[in-house]
């Protein structure tokens, strides 16, 4: 057996290379009922999360608020790529998000959008990248997933409900819907877990 063929083996670890087994960190969502349903007890960091929703403004930011507050207060950056409306600064501030660590990207072409999302995910300085891409193919999602792994970032892609039956490489897929008492979440896919129950996040009075 030659040295070359030994080095080709997957189970040989070389000092100069990246460690093969990444530890997966999870970031508590701030909603205990949701944490209990997610593998690792929180948002998968270093992976892609898809939020599928029929319309905007049903509580998607309230869902993410605690995690965003935590990341931005820790000095990690939050990148918003093509949000459907203006993230309203006073409301974010109220939710505990450090606005100093927010950056807003308004990008016209889909190619540039994907490029920017990938760059931000990959960079390692961003805590979370929230993206509302115009259109995105599974192959491109896969790229973003890899970029998120590389940069240990929380990648969150908002897409419409139409794609819920499509294959996706994202580690976590949630379906969001407004319900009478709050926000109803269905976990469509969660790496490492199955048989999840739907959850309803109650509306509180300090609305975010």
């Amino acid at each position: 057996m030659s040295l070359d063929s030994v080095l080709q083996r997957a189970d040989v670890w070389r000092g100069g290379e990246q460690s093969l087994h990444r530890q997966v960190h999870n970031l508590p969502t701030g909603h205990a009922a949701l944490d209990a349903q997610l593998s690792g007890g929180g948002w998968p960091v270093g992976a892609l999360t898809e939020c599928l929703l029929a319309q905007h403004g049903i509580g998607e930011l309230r869902l993410l608020g605690p995690a965003l507050a935590r990341l931005s207060q820790a000095g990690r950056w939050l990148v918003w790529v093509n949000p459907p409306y203006l993230p309203y600064a006073p409301a974010l501030n109220h939710a505990g998000v450090s606005l100093r660590h927010n950056i807003l990207l308004q990008i016209e072409t889909p190619d540039d959008q994907l490029w920017a999302i990938e760059q931000a995910l990959r960079s390692g300085s961003c805590g979370a990248v929230l993206a509302w891409p115009q259109r995105i193919a599974p192959r491109q999602l896969r790229r973003l997933q890899l970029a998120a792994e590389m940069g240990s970032a929380l990648g969150i892609v908002f897409r419409s409900l139409e794609v819920q039956h499509q294959h996706s490489p994202a580690a976590l897929r949630l379906r969001l819907a407004a319900a009478a008492s709050g926000l109803r979440l269905d976990i469509l896919k969660c790496r490492g877990r199955f048989n999840s129950q739907p959850i309803v996040l109650e509306n509180d009075h300090a609305v975010a």
Partner: peptide
């Protein structure tokens, strides 16, 4: 878990602004 290829924040910002234009990259 962090790889050596990470770029720091100013560099990322620079790169985004270089391609997208400074008016597309803003804080609030």
């Amino acid at each position: 878990t962090h790889s050596a290829e990470h770029v720091d924040w100013p560099q990322l910002c620079e790169r985004l602004q270089a391609r997208l234009g400074p008016e597309a990259v803003r804080g609030i």
